[in-house]
Design a protein around this nucleic acid. Structure first.
Lengths: 351, 351
DNA sequence: TCCGGGAATGTTAGCGCTAACAGACCCGCC
DNA sequence: GGCGGGTCTGTTAGCGCTAACATTCCCGGA
């Protein structure tokens, strides 16, 4: 059979522009292709002297294995899929970055699909696209309630981990505890003597927004405080500004918890335009601790989320899942505690 | 030969947990595997009635082609590599997002490698990792001078496009014209009667920082203005604040151009702390037009960069390059013009 | 000296798909 | 009715690698 196959590397001259194959390395090292493969994949099974010869040949020829061929045989690609939404937002961007670093440390590559819209269809499509590329597993960063619905339709055979989603999903989960963060922010304000705390919330269909609003509500209830009308924004500074203008002239507003730092920034501006001083007249707390928040006017009291750690947890959970594919078992949950960072935008209520 | 190969799909029962192969689809549709392949890859070459039968079978079995096998044969993966640096920074994040959208519209997936350090070694490694995954081409978003050096070592056989790098590289380039942006920002201030303009620059080894500083210098020279000492930051609000404190009490400082919006934010704060009013005492211009900049105090005059368009250009250039691999030819350059956005942080110099 | 047995290496047979060629089919026209 | 020409479909042969089995090698002990 060896006779009839005409295009074996040995038949053509030595690498002239042609891509270097494992067989070329084998020839140069004076071994078989299989030994080269072993040196690359399980070095322990090859005698040291042989291994050295092979590695020298690999370097000499600048050989790079063809991944497609390897994947075809082994079924594993060394690529993880990441599904995300609007990676220009600070939260998603930081989470993806955290995942990427964790993956790189373990020699995984990540492929990213952003969602154009948040609905069950688009999540399914994104996952399909990644499955099509033979990823070993998928991390879904889609902090959206309707996204959670989309997750229910997903195939159970593929290892999937979810970041920051709602509670009841059949997947391992890594997240920051939004509820606790919001409770801390709200209680910080109540502890300073404010009669109640207003809340500029995120979009109703975001899981994190829901969690923060629930935490705020719980803290108010625990303190037996009146719960002001809900003010719903969209994470943007603009929405914080617009909502801020609605409450800025109400003197009963002395403490506001904004669902993220961008909204807090808009709020600060609306308050100042209305002549209210911060923190003397109104205290403001944000959420996220974006790198700019210490330089707001005034520096913003906010809640820090450790996205890097969430990313690392998500990666670890996925590795666990890939390791033992008995999908049914208990689904790991890694919840990271947020941290209140007190700066100058909050003060005790004036007597 | 067909006899001896024991594991053909037909030999085992119909798909029982086993992965669905093209041959299964073919059997169900009553055609050969090749016809299925044609329906999937060049539908025009198959009679409509046959095509319909095949597609029905594909859907019935929920068949998904094995990409690894396809890549092994065709050599094309449908994946583009993106090399980037710190995707939590607004610029890189937005660029990557723009690339991702453009890629998605053309059914490409992107794989991302972030650089931990900016030096020639790390760029080479990142490119190697992507090459290892058989990407069809690579877009490098590494706006760093030493990165540019790393680019010189890259293999010429792989289609590569660079975003926002320095001038003289043997690759197609997409970028925002930093020089023009900086000239516009500076001239805007000079036109308002300021005697000169100070500049908080970005890190010296970033290409964009160099471009902006050069534009600032050119505009000053054109206006025959004194060039103040250079103040070098690192893009962060903190560095803008620190540098701001150094100049805040100097009454001759009446106009400052910050190399990005984050630094401008820190600067605003330092100026206010020193009792200088903006824009009455000092005018400030930023660069980037981050979504929050309209809500700074005061709203920031800045320079808008259209990252989405840069991403789209980069993608298009890469497609061109993949299309005709005669690497030698002219290298496309797509330079996007930035736009000055005047808000309330700039005003005419007091008489 | 020869032999048993584990370690090192080689050989064979695909992984699932598509390029290239071969063959079947169909239509209208002579 | 038969035949040229295009259209549609099938067959064959790998793409480059690795799992599994086969073989060789090497060493100490009898």
């Amino acid at each position: 059979m060896g006779e009839s196959t005409g295009r074996r590397p040995a038949d053509r001259g030595p690498a002239e522009g042609r891509r270097v194959l494992m067989e070329d390395v084998a020839a140069l090292a004076g071994v078989s292709a299989m030994t080269v493969s072993r040196v690359l994949n399980s070095p322990g099974k090859v005698r040291a002297s042989t291994r050295a010869r092979v590695l020298a040949a690999v370097r000499a020829l600048d050989y790079r294995p063809n991944v497609a061929a390897r994947v075809l045989v082994t079924g594993r690609s060394g690529v993880l899929g990441v599904v995300s939404f609007d990676t220009t937002l600070y939260g998603p961007a930081s989470t993806v970055y955290g995942i990427e670093r964790a993956a790189r440390e373990h020699d995984y590559l990540i492929s990213i699909v952003s969602l154009s819209a948040l609905n069950r269809r688009s999540i399914g499509e994104a996952v399909d696209r990644l499955r099509g590329q033979a990823v070993d597993g998928i991390i879904i960063v889609a902090p959206h309630v309707s996204a959670a619905e989309g997750l229910r339709d997903l195939p159970p055979d593929l290892p999937i981990v979810v970041v920051g989603a709602a509670e009841e999903l059949p997947f391992p989960l890594a997240a920051v505890d939004q509820h606790v963060g919001a409770v801390r922010a709200t209680r910080h304000l109540l502890d300073m003597g404010h009669e109640t705390v207003w809340h500029l919330s995120g979009p109703a269909d975001w899981v994190d927004a829901g969690g923060r609003a629930a935490g705020w509500r719980a803290a108010l209830a625990a303190g037996r405080c009146r719960e002001p009308d809900s003010l719903v924004g969209d994470w943007s500074a603009r929405s914080g500004y617009d909502l801020g203008r609605m409450i800025a002239r109400d003197p009963s507003v002395t403490a506001v918890f904004a669902a993220n730092d961008a909204m807090a920034l808009g709020l600060l501006r609306a308050l100042r335009e209305a002549g209210r001083r911060i923190p003397q007249d109104v205290s403001v707390v944000g959420f996220d601790n974006v790198p700019e928040s210490p330089y707001f006017s005034p520096p913003l009291t906010t809640v820090r989320q450790n996205f890097g750690e969430v990313g690392r947890h998500a990666f670890t959970l996925l590795m666990d899942r890939i390791g033992r594919p008995d999908a049914g078992g208990a689904h790991g949950r890694r919840v990271v505690g947020p941290e209140l960072i007190v700066r100058e935008s909050t003060a005790a209520r004036r007597a």
